[in-house]
Computed example of a mutant assay.
Amino acid sequence: MTSWRKRATVLLFLLHAVLLSACWDRVEIDQRGFVAGVAIDKEPQREETSQKQGKAPEIVGTYQMLVPSGLRSGGKEGGSPGAAFFNMSVTERSIMALSARMAAKTSRTPYFEHLQVILLSNEAVKDGRLDFADILDFFLRNNEMRRDINVLIADGDAKRLLSVKSMNESYPAAYIDSAINNYKKTCYMRPESRIGYVHEQILKNVSFTIQKISAYEDGISLTGAALFDSHHRFVAFLSGSETGGLNFLKGDVKGGVVETSMDDDIIDFDIERATRNIKARREGDNFKFTVEIEAEGTIGKSIRKLDVAKLSSIRKMEDLFAKEIVQLSEKTIRTLQKKYKKDAIGLGMHLYQNKLMSWEELSENWEDGRQLFADATIEVKAEVNIRRLGNINQSERR
């Protein structure tokens, strides 16, 4: 009997422990300060003081806080009565300190589980005293953060992008987050740069690119990309055409349009799918790479009097589109090899995965030291297949 009572007492204590600890950290939803977007800029006014004192530069963190009542009513411009959001800025020397300062200024505790975008100004990430990995450390380490938060590099001030007109969305962070997915409709912007992906690139010590964002008229533009080297230092921005070539070279094209000229007129190729294959052959201390690109799609625009139903016309257009893809890719290769000497294409990773012994011999001199990447031979071949002609054969009679 005594043994039974002891067991019952232990079970009762265990049951109480489970029931009483279930909501120990509960915070009512109306007491949370939902953060939808964060912008990080360098504080320019105190730069000279920081340099003299040998301290890290001060950074400005701008937090976009959501107002649930404003979201229900459709929302207005930030800061106005009935607005769906408001922006609040604080200045400190670290991201963790920014969050602590932020908590002291707002009536609701900042809550990051619904954070959608992190915008970092190019001035902040290119400052040698602000390590890129250190900036992201807080967002990677905090248990409220998700691995699918989008990271973008802003050309200019990042905080002003959290105040752009949000078009079809209730607040700017949602507008930016929605626009990021449009990479499937254009070749000239990089695929989404989620913080989990960026973290993987930093750990691999490889050169990589992140989506670029800039203010454009009343909205934003995501054309181009931010280039980082294998030491995760910001190098430069790639143009839209260079980003398009990079997408083809990396096999990241999900859609978009290739435009070229034919008989003094413009023709368009609407890409539906594209693939790329890399072949590598060692020649002494150097490698020769052949990048084979295949693209399929439909005619988006043709010459008015051209009969696209003719096989000869189709073959001619396929050759012209393939030539345009090769030229676009070769322009990117020249920029990466000769100007920046950074392997954002991923050729070094291809060697690591497929020719490990050779890679281990050359890896230390791939981008650094002898910079073998800059001397590598890279040949691009492209093949285009027009699968559909659209709904018509001709725009007008010949």
Rank of each mutant, 00 (worst) to 15 (best):
residue 192 E to V: 06
residue 274 A to G: 07
residue 324 E to S: 08
residue 55 K to M: 00
residue 239 S to P: 01
residue 255 G to L: 07
residue 4 W to V: 14
residue 38 V to I: 07
residue 189 M to E: 08
residue 295 A to N: 06
residue 77 E to H: 10
residue 280 A to K: 07
residue 353 Q to Y: 15
residue 353 Q to C: 15
residue 61 G to D: 01
residue 360 E to V: 14
residue 92 E to H: 13
residue 92 E to D: 13
residue 67 V to S: 02
residue 168 N to W: 01
residue 286 N to F: 15
residue 62 T to W: 06
residue 308 V to E: 02
residue 33 G to R: 02
residue 328 L to F: 09
residue 133 A to H: 00
residue 202 I to W: 05
residue 326 V to T: 14
residue 229 D to S: 06
residue 78 G to V: 12
residue 170 S to P: 04
residue 377 T to S: 13
residue 272 E to L: 08
residue 68 P to H: 00
residue 117 V to C: 03
residue 18 V to P: 00
residue 323 K to N: 10
residue 189 M to W: 01
residue 37 G to P: 04
residue 46 R to D: 09
residue 36 A to K: 05
residue 361 E to W: 10
residue 395 S to K: 03
residue 88 M to Y: 15
residue 251 G to V: 07
residue 338 K to N: 14
residue 83 A to Q: 09
residue 394 Q to C: 08
residue 285 D to W: 11
residue 129 R to P: 00
residue 398 R to N: 08
residue 349 M to K: 15
residue 312 S to M: 14
residue 195 I to N: 03
residue 65 M to I: 11
residue 238 L to G: 05
residue 306 L to T: 14
residue 1 M to K: 06
residue 250 K to H: 09
residue 390 G to C: 07
residue 382 A to G: 12
residue 26 R to I: 00
residue 85 F to H: 14
residue 296 E to N: 11
residue 299 I to S: 04
residue 48 E to H: 05
residue 394 Q to W: 01
residue 62 T to S: 05
residue 252 D to L: 11
residue 323 K to F: 04
residue 380 V to R: 12
residue 66 L to G: 01
residue 36 A to T: 03
residue 244 G to R: 05
residue 315 R to K: 15
residue 113 E to C: 01
residue 319 D to T: 14
residue 249 L to V: 07
residue 271 I to E: 06
residue 316 K to N: 15
residue 108 R to M: 08
residue 13 F to Q: 00
residue 12 L to Y: 04
residue 241 S to L: 11
residue 121 S to H: 01
residue 327 Q to H: 14
residue 102 M to A: 13
residue 22 A to S: 03
residue 163 S to M: 13
residue 177 D to S: 08
residue 115 L to G: 03
residue 60 V to F: 03
residue 162 L to I: 08
residue 225 A to K: 03
